[in-house]
């Protein structure tokens, strides 16, 4: 009976680990853009690979500056990932901002580089 309990706990742990917000590159990019969409820039910055709290604060400020006013994301779609190695990947994502600058499009597609660190995927800006 004890063995079965342990087995169930083990299985649940594996299932939950696989469902985590940063368990794969697409999920990280999706969570990052969702946080930006919700203007939760602190949470968004937590998906960027950083070494200390100071760097995190700088990323939070940077995101706040980039995605303010007309540049706020109103729609996004994560396309898929390509793995360079088992610990590095690129994810393609399309975004739409509230209002495009004159002569430019409100929609854009970009490739975001990610790295795996301690079992979780992070956006790699370095």
């Amino acid at each position: 009976m004890k063995k079965i309990k342990l087995l169930i706990i083990g299985l649940l742990a594996i299932v939950f680990a696989g469902c985590g917000e940063q368990s794969n590159p697409e999920k990280t990019v999706k969570a990052f853009h969702k946080a930006i969409y919700e203007k939760d820039f602190g949470t968004a910055a937590s998906y960027i690979l950083s070494t200390n709290a100071e760097e995190q604060a700088a990323y939070t400020k940077m995101l706040k500056d980039i995605y303010k006013g007309d540049n706020a994301i109103i729609n996004f779609h994560v396309y898929g990932a390509a793995f360079s190695t088992k610990d590095a990947a690129k994810v393609a994502v399309s975004t739409e901002v509230a209002k495009a600058p004159k002569g430019m499009s409100a929609k854009d597609v970009m490739i975001i580089p990610l790295v795996k660190s301690e079992g979780s995927w992070y956006i790699n800006l370095q």
Partner: peptide, 29 residues
């Protein structure tokens, strides 16, 4: 992977592919 029409006359597609060196360098996008 996906295609986004960004204006009436412009679109951007994200394409992933393998290369002859993919075993060493991974997939390209």
């Amino acid at each position: 992977l996906g295609v986004e029409q960004i204006s009436e006359t412009e679109a951007v597609a994200a394409v992933k592919y393998k290369t002859a060196f993919s075993e060493a360098t991974g997939d390209e996008m």
